[in-house]
Amino acid sequence: MKQFFTVLGGMGTLATESYCRLLDERTPTHRDQDYLDYIVLNHATVPDRTEWILDHQKPDYNPLLIEDIQQITPLKPEFFVLICNTAHYAFDRLQAATSIPILNMLQETVDEIKNIAPHAKRVGVLATRGTIASGLYDSYIQNAGYEEVKPTPAILDATEDLIYHDIKEAGHSDGKKFHELVRTMIEDQKCDVVILGCTELSYANEMNPETEFPVADSQSIIVNRSLERALAIRNGNQ
């Protein structure tokens, strides 16, 4: 297979399924052969990213992702897509493992804010405790000239309840919880737009789309960037 890309997924599995579903839905097709060629690594046993970020005595997820990247690199994919915001904590370390580009979900998400909310000044972030505690989005948001608004402890607790209890553990999303998180960030925290900085939140948005308030959905955005890049390669424009 040539002109394919590789999805580094399984973090978690429902979010990876969401990525593939959205990618296929958005691909312009009239026949089987119009869909994109890609490999999905649903590496569900990768250790929890947040646990390691908060406590380096916990199992490190990076060696397994690096091994995945090194195993796939000889197959010569055009690019990699890393379907986990929190795993970008060691993005430079992962990119150093291959000469093949890895799309940067965080950078792409922040870049898209100018199109989602052109007049935005205050950008909120909903994400895992690891993403928030490590300041993963900080430099991207600040370099783009925005003021970052992080969730309060209560909002963070509610976010992780949705991510870990409802989606990762129970296998479903609670639309009411999800929409309340976004509303709280917009109305109570005075944000102009909210980054969904966890692919489980993107899954929640797919299941129960947020239509009242502006959100920068990291997974939806990286789906679009994947599609654009893959089609450009197919058409010989890259």
Rank of each mutant, 00 (worst) to 15 (best):
G9T: 10
G10R: 03
M11T: 13
L14D: 06
Y19T: 03
L22R: 08
T29P: 02
D32M: 05
Q33H: 12
L36M: 10
Y38D: 09
Y38N: 09
V40H: 04
E51M: 12
W52S: 04
L54H: 09
N62H: 09
L64T: 10
E67S: 13
K76C: 12
P77F: 15
F80K: 01
C84V: 10
T86Y: 01
H88S: 07
D92W: 01
L94T: 09
Q95W: 02
I100N: 00
I100W: 03
I102P: 06
L103Q: 01
Q107F: 08
K114L: 10
I116A: 06
P118V: 12
A120D: 08
G124R: 00
V125Y: 00
A133Q: 11
I141V: 15
N143Q: 13
Y146A: 06
E148L: 13
E148S: 06
V149Y: 00
V149H: 00
D157S: 11
D161A: 10
I167Q: 09
A170K: 15
S173L: 08
D174T: 10
G175E: 10
R183N: 13
T184C: 15
M185W: 14
M185D: 12
I186N: 02
E187G: 04
D192E: 08
V193P: 11
L196V: 08
G197R: 03
S202G: 11
N205K: 02
M207P: 08
V215N: 04
S220V: 05
N224F: 10
R229K: 15
L231G: 03
L231F: 11
